[in-house]
Simulated scan of single mutants.
Amino acid sequence: MTTVRKAVIPVAGLGTRVLPASKAIPKEMMPVVDKPVIQHVVEEAVRAGIKEIVLVTRNGKSAIEDHFDKHFELEQSLERKNKTAILESIRNIVPKDVTILSVRQPDALGLGHAVFCAAQAVNNEAFAVILPDVLVNNYQQSENDLQKMVKAFDQHNAAQIMVESVPQDKVHLYGIADCKGIKPAAGESVAISGMVEKPSAEEAPSDLSVVGRYILPARVMTLLADTKPGAGGEIQLTDALDELLKEQSVEAYRMTGKTYDCGNKLGYLQANVAYGLQHPETADGLKQFIAQQG
C-alpha cells in the first residue's frame, strides 16, 4: 500500500492570465468539455490512490467547495425527471472514500506559503502537491503519471518532481531541473542535483521543465516553516526543495502524458480541443467541425 494518501492543491490564485473570464468565476471552475478544471485534477489524484484532498483556498473561491458538495435540490429534480446518467455524474464526482477539505491562505505569499497552509491537514505524512493550472492528459494509458510518481516515491524513498522536455528556446520560461546531464526516459526517474528558475538557453542545465506535480516527504513542511521569503518577496517551494536536497535524494520523473496549461488562454483552448476529441459525446462532431475549418 502506498504511503502517499494526501494531496495539497493550491487554488487561491487570482487567475489574471485568463481575465476577464476569471473575474467572478474561479479559474479552476472554468470547464474543459463538461467538467471544471479542478475536477479533472482531483480525478487525477484519486486515480493515483489519493484519499484526502486539501484545497488551499481564499475568500471568493467558495464555488470550488460547492462543486464537490452535495446539491440536494438539483439531485431531487434530476431524480424526478429520471435523468439517471446526469444524476450519477454529479453524485459521484469523487468516490465515497475520498475526503475533500479546505484551508485558507490568508495572504498571497507564494506557492511555498500556500503549501505550508496545509501543514496541519497533512499531519506529518508524505503528500502530493498538484498545481491545478496544468492538466496532465494520460488518455488511454493504464496508469497516469501521478500514479507512477507515487510508485517511484515508495520504491526509491526519494521525493519526485514531474518534468517534461521543452524546446531550448522556451527554457527561460520555466524552472529547469539539473540532472547532471542525465536525461530520464519517459516514465523513469533520475536524481536531481538542483533546480534553476527561468535560466537563459545558454545557462540552462537541461531542457527538463518542472510541470507542477510533486510527491514530497513530510520533512518538506518543517523546512517550509523556516523558509524565508525569496524571489518576489514570496515563500518559494523551490527554496524548501533546495534545502531538502542537502539532506536526501530528490528525483526528476519524466512524464509520459501531455500537458495543457489552462492558466492561459491558448492552453485552455488546446485542452478543450484535446479533451473534446477524447469525449464520446463530442469527439465525432468536433472532428467534423475542425475538418470544416481547413
Rank of each mutant, 00 (worst) to 15 (best):
134 V>I: 15
234 E>W: 03
180 K>S: 15
241 L>Q: 02
198 K>Q: 10
170 K>A: 08
201 A>M: 08
190 V>I: 14
175 G>V: 02
194 G>K: 12
267 G>L: 09
164 E>D: 12
161 I>R: 05
152 A>L: 04
205 P>F: 01
188 E>D: 14
245 L>R: 15
261 D>Q: 15
170 K>S: 13
158 A>D: 13
258 K>T: 15
264 N>M: 06
202 E>M: 11
160 Q>E: 13
173 L>Y: 11
181 G>S: 10
271 A>I: 03
173 L>C: 14
196 V>G: 02
190 V>G: 08
226 D>A: 12
197 E>Q: 14
195 M>Y: 05
268 Y>E: 01
160 Q>D: 09
251 E>K: 09
251 E>L: 08
141 Q>S: 10
234 E>C: 08
208 L>I: 06
260 Y>C: 00
152 A>Q: 03
135 L>F: 07
139 Y>E: 15
244 L>C: 12
216 L>R: 07
156 H>F: 13
164 E>T: 14
196 V>M: 09
238 T>Q: 10
240 A>D: 01
195 M>N: 09
165 S>T: 14
159 A>P: 09
228 K>T: 14
182 I>T: 12
243 E>G: 05
268 Y>R: 03
219 R>N: 11
179 C>H: 02
137 N>K: 08
215 I>D: 06
220 V>H: 04
209 S>P: 07
207 D>T: 12
157 N>V: 07
265 K>R: 15
261 D>L: 12
134 V>R: 04
228 K>N: 06
244 L>R: 05
173 L>V: 09
260 Y>R: 02
134 V>Q: 01
145 D>Y: 08
138 N>E: 12
133 D>I: 00
154 D>M: 06
165 S>D: 15
180 K>Q: 14
158 A>V: 11
233 G>N: 12
210 V>D: 02
179 C>R: 03
208 L>H: 01
172 H>N: 14
258 K>F: 05
157 N>W: 05
191 A>Q: 14
258 K>C: 09
234 E>G: 01
259 T>C: 13
149 M>D: 11
185 A>I: 00
136 V>Y: 01
164 E>Y: 01
175 G>L: 02
259 T>Y: 03
225 A>S: 15
160 Q>S: 06
213 R>C: 00
206 S>H: 07
179 C>D: 03
194 G>V: 12
192 I>P: 00
131 L>E: 09
167 P>R: 08
226 D>R: 11
218 A>F: 00
150 V>R: 01
185 A>V: 02
161 I>C: 06
204 A>P: 03
194 G>F: 04
164 E>W: 00
138 N>I: 04
171 V>H: 01
188 E>K: 11
160 Q>W: 06
204 A>I: 04
163 V>H: 01
268 Y>D: 01
202 E>D: 11
204 A>V: 02
247 E>P: 06
252 A>M: 08
254 R>Q: 15
263 G>C: 08
252 A>Q: 07
218 A>I: 00
167 P>K: 14
229 P>M: 03
261 D>P: 07
175 G>N: 07
221 M>W: 03
182 I>F: 09
244 L>F: 01
242 D>G: 09
215 I>Q: 08
151 K>A: 07
